[in-house]
Amino acid sequence: MPKEWVPDDNDPGAHEPDTDYSAALIATLTRVLSAWTAPDFMTAVAAREGVELDPGAITMVTILSKDGPQRPSYLAAEMMTGASNISKISARLTAAGLLQRIPDPSDARAQLLELTAPGKKIAVALVRAGAGLVEELLRGWDTTDRLDLVRLLKKFEGSTITFSAGLGPATAANSTKKNNHKEH
């Protein structure tokens, strides 16, 4: 009969055998997220498709491409930054001819930020850059492993969003979930 596991409060390295994977998972996710969100990584991946934008601009173009025209307040919530930063990023994108302000059809006092035709072309190039990155990272993986990775990450994402929503309104995932639609 196997010995029953008993926690040892004096040994911070003691883990229940079935949960030893948690430290490895957290360490791996931390390394991946750190790499993927590093400004130099993001700009270098985009540059492979000829896109020369700063990380904030890349993020804004990506969000507007996915979600369509949005109010600056929506972008601030999605990008987890302030209105001042959104104003600076949108000014750079507007000056580059990639972004324009349009009237909000639901509120004549408000404006939406929208990608221009050249901005949409940049968004397509960013998608190509991301697809190329994933292809390189998964080179040598068979189809089953690739599909398993996607399936498990989607499952993990769902668990994360559910957990985050239970933490309260100050969490990022909960904020994103609530703002997953156009503001009116």
Rank of each mutant, 00 (worst) to 15 (best):
M1P: 15
M1E: 08
E4Y: 12
E4N: 10
P7N: 04
D8F: 14
N10E: 11
N10V: 11
N10S: 12
P12N: 12
E16W: 10
D18F: 03
D18L: 11
D20P: 09
D20N: 10
D20A: 15
S22K: 06
A23K: 03
A23M: 12
A27R: 01
L29S: 02
V32R: 00
S34H: 05
T37K: 09
P39M: 01
F41G: 02
F41H: 02
M42P: 07
A44V: 08
V45C: 03
A46E: 02
A46W: 01
R48T: 03
V51M: 02
E52K: 13
L53S: 03
L53T: 01
D54M: 09
D54A: 10
P55F: 03
A57F: 04
A57T: 05
T59E: 11
T59N: 09
G68W: 00
Q70A: 05
R71D: 00
P72D: 06
S73E: 13
S73W: 02
Y74Q: 14
T81V: 09
G82W: 06
A83S: 13
N85R: 15
I86F: 05
S87D: 13
I89H: 11
I89G: 15
A91T: 11
A91P: 12
R92V: 13
A95N: 08
A96F: 01
Q100T: 15
R101T: 13
P103F: 14
P103T: 08
D104E: 12
P105T: 07
P105K: 15
S106V: 13
A108C: 09
R109Q: 09
R109S: 11
A110S: 09
L112D: 03
E114Q: 06
T116N: 00
K121Y: 07
I122V: 10
A123V: 02
A123C: 01
A125K: 09
A125V: 08
V127E: 06
R128N: 13
A129Q: 04
A129P: 00
G130D: 08
G130P: 00
L133Q: 00
E136L: 15
L138G: 14
L138Q: 14
R139K: 09
G140H: 06
T144Y: 04
T144W: 03
L147C: 10
L149S: 01
R151F: 13
K154L: 13
F156A: 12
F156D: 08
E157I: 11
S159R: 14
A165H: 14
G166F: 05
P169W: 07
A170T: 05
N174G: 13
T176N: 06
K177C: 10
K177R: 14
N179L: 04
K182D: 06
E183W: 02
